[in-house]
Every structure is written in C-alpha cells, then in structure tokens.
Design a protein around this nucleic acid. Structure first.
Lengths: 216, 216
DNA sequence: CTCATATTCCAACGATTTTTGGAATAGTAC
DNA sequence: GTACTATTCCAAAAATCGTTGGAATATGAG
C-alpha cells in the first residue's frame, strides 16, 4: 500500500464511497427511503438474507447513513437524515446519465413500458378517468400513500382483477424507482384488457418531488 | 450471492459507487479536476506508482468518469464532463457533514489553520495589503492561475523567503481542497514572521465557485 | 427463573480488488 | 529496419470485502 501524504484524508472519503459500492447496501437504502423498517422487514422486503441484511446495516451505520432505535425486542432502522435520500438521488442521476448498461438494465427489468411522471399524475388526480392503485404491501399503504390511491398488493390484484373498470386508465405504483412490482402489475392489467401505466419513481419519487400525500 | 429481482440494476448502480470507493481513484479524480494530465504526470503529482495509476485509470474510464486521448507517444486523461467534478464536490460535502473522522483527518493534515474563503479573497484581490502566491508547479501555474497570483512552488518559496514583504497578508493556494502543500507553505511563512493563510478549496475550489482567473 | 424472539458478534471461506513485475503494444526518432 | 519512450495487458501475490453458520446478547412473556 503506497502512501501519498493526503492518503488518510482520501481513505476517509472512500468510506462514504464504499458505502455506496455494493448492490445490497444500495437496495437497503432504497427500501429505507420509504420509511423506517425493522431488520426483519428489510430483509423480507429487499429479498436479502437476514444475517447479511444485519451485517450490511452495520456498515451503513458506521458510515452514518442510517441510525437505529430499539423498541422492545426489535430494532428499527431509518435513514440518518433527509440529505441521505437526496444524495442517493444525485448518485442515481449521475449514474444514469453515464452508464448505458444501467439504463439497459432498468429498461429490461422495469420499463419497456412508458411511465407516468409524478407531475403529470398530479395534474390528473381529480380526473375520474384516472385510477391510481398502490401495489405495495398493505402496511406500506397504511403508513402513507398517494391521494385517492387504492391499496391492491400484487397478490390481491390478481384475485380481484375482474372488479377493475375497463373505461379508465390505471396508474400503478410501488416503492422506489427500481421497484419491479408496479411494472408487473401493469403487464398483468394490460393482459386483461385494461389501459395501465406505472408511475415513474414510485412512491419515493412522488414524495421526493414534493407532491402531497393522502390525509389519513 | 443471493438474488433479489432488482439485483442487476443495483449491480450497475454499484459500479459508480465502486469508482468512488478507493482512495487512489478519488485522489486521481481530484488531480484531474485541475486539468488534463498524462499518466506519468498524474502518477507524479498524485504520488501513486505508475503501474497502479494506469490500472486505476482503466477503471475510471470503464465507469465513464474520465476519457483519454492519445498525442504522439503519451496519453492524456481528463474528466469525462463537467458533471464529474460537480458530483465529486457533492460527495465531498456529503461526506464532510457525516464523518467526524474525515473532518479530523482534514484538520490534522491540512488546516489547524483557518483558511480564507474564495469569496473573501475575491473581494480583496485589489487590496495592496494582500499578496496571493501559487505554490503549485510552474506548469500548473502556466495553465491557469488566480488574478495577480505569483508563482512560488514550495521549493522556490524556501529559497526566496527573504524577498517576501512583512507588511502584507499572504494567501497561499495549491491544487484542490485536500492539497497539503499550501498549509505547509503557510506554516513556513509564519515561522518566518509573515502573516499567512491558505485558500480554502485551493485552485479548483476557486474556479468551482465561479470567480475569474488571470488572463494570459 | 426459563423460554422464545430479534438481532448482533465472531469466525471462516470464497470472491473481488489492489498492487506490482514482466511482457506486449503503439508511437517517435534515427 | 533498430532503439527508445509512454502506456497497457496479463498474471500472480496481498489485501479487503461479502456472505453465512453458530454462539452470544438483549428484551419481553410467563
């Protein structure tokens, strides 16, 4: 390990870089952008083994990107402050404009389909020809959702497809910009003859662009 | 290696994170913020072995953070576009507000001394009681420098200390925010009875905050 | 107190990254 | 063509990181 005089400084700076250098940590941060979660919930929601979720969270905490609080037997993690999701967004934008492979991966997994932007949807919330469905878990919906949105987790959507009207456009959203659930919902809906589009940026994107949430 | 469905996306995103996850690459990016450099110059200026400099540059290029052009037998690297130094600044700010260890490392190596901000210095350029010296290499000075600055690389400064006036405040600057040369110069000057302060953010900080450079 | 649950700590193994030596390439000068 | 320079490619050693199993900790319930 060679040593230029400024190395200790750059080593510290690299600690923050490293925090964003693994897919698992990035995923966890994205899930946490939606709100506070226990380790188990995170593990479940992110699709990452529990032990590993815990281990990666330690690292995120060491980098001061998340904080935790104990409540009885479980521990809740949340983003350390509002600059974290902000920076995460900057990182995403920066990465998107640079890596064609990232854009490809996104379009392959998420949106061969054109999405609705938050701003466009905001202008159409009152429109009776637009229906908004929230395909996240019922818990997430309970914690906060778009005004007028109906809670229909993917499983439930499958069962209750018949109940959905044919004469409106359906906008489906899930957690964050890389969430794969809403595009799946949209494909399912289209296969059953409905007009449907996903919301770009998902719930966190909506909140991040300053639009209002439902009162509850 | 476990697999949640969004993993390929986050893996791509992590590529950008990884690019900022090593002290050597961060250092190279900082040097490149000053301007275009050959591999050898970079190796020299950053204090990193030539082979390794080359290897790390390949990675930066793979992440589209730098581009290169060939001129005769040497190859010049530069930042891919103006968003790279911008993002680098955002990363630095984000890291600074989060990591006390980083702030400590900076104050230990750079500024136990209070610096002059670019804005403050800008207002004092015309003041005859302020003298600005550029302690970078003569080459760097030739490529661009602050209006009214005198080129005095550290070695030369040592030899010509006697020539400097006692009745003005001397502001010394070098490359970037983490450059250790200007604080060294300031300490040297103070030991010899001058009033001196470093410029915060160095040359790149000055340019980044939109102040004008010397005409040449 | 014991038992059950949620999470972390520790240690290990495998995978990836960093760094360097030696050979290869691409260019210039002669 | 040969000699020389700047840089990269390739391969191997050293260091670091990601992941997981098993033991340990902290809390609450009974």
């Amino acid at each position: 390990m060679a040593g230029f005089p400024e190395e200790p400084i750059y080593q510290q700076l690299a600690r923050i870089g490293k925090a964003f250098a693994g897919p698992v940590r990035l995923r966890l941060l994205d899930v946490l952008t939606e709100g506070e979660r226990t380790v188990e919930e995170l593990s479940e929601e992110a699709g990452i083994a529990l032990k590993n979720t815990s281990a990666q969270l330690q690292q995120l905490r060491a980098a001061h990107l998340v904080t935790s609080r104990r409540e009885g037997t479980r521990i809740y993690y949340r983003l350390a402050d509002e600059r974290v999701p902000l920076f995460l967004g900057q990182l995403r934008d920066f990465a998107h404009e640079r890596l064609a492979d990232l854009r490809d991966a996104v379009s392959e997994h998420i949106d061969s389909l054109e999405g609705v932007t938050a701003d466009e949807l905001a202008g159409r919330l009152a429109d009776p020809n637009t229906m908004v469905i929230d395909v996240r878990s019922a818990d997430s919906y309970a914690e906060g959702h778009l005004p007028g949105a109906v809670s229909l987790p993917l499983e439930e959507l499958r069962d209750r497809l018949d109940e959905l009207p044919h004469d409106v456009e359906i906008v489906a959203y899930c957690g964050g910009p890389y969430c794969v659930v809403s595009p799946r919902a949209v494909r399912l809906l289209r296969e059953h003859g409905r007009r449907a589009r996903p919301l770009e940026g998902g719930f966190t994107g909506w909140r991040g662009s300053g639009h209002r949430l439902a009162d509850h």
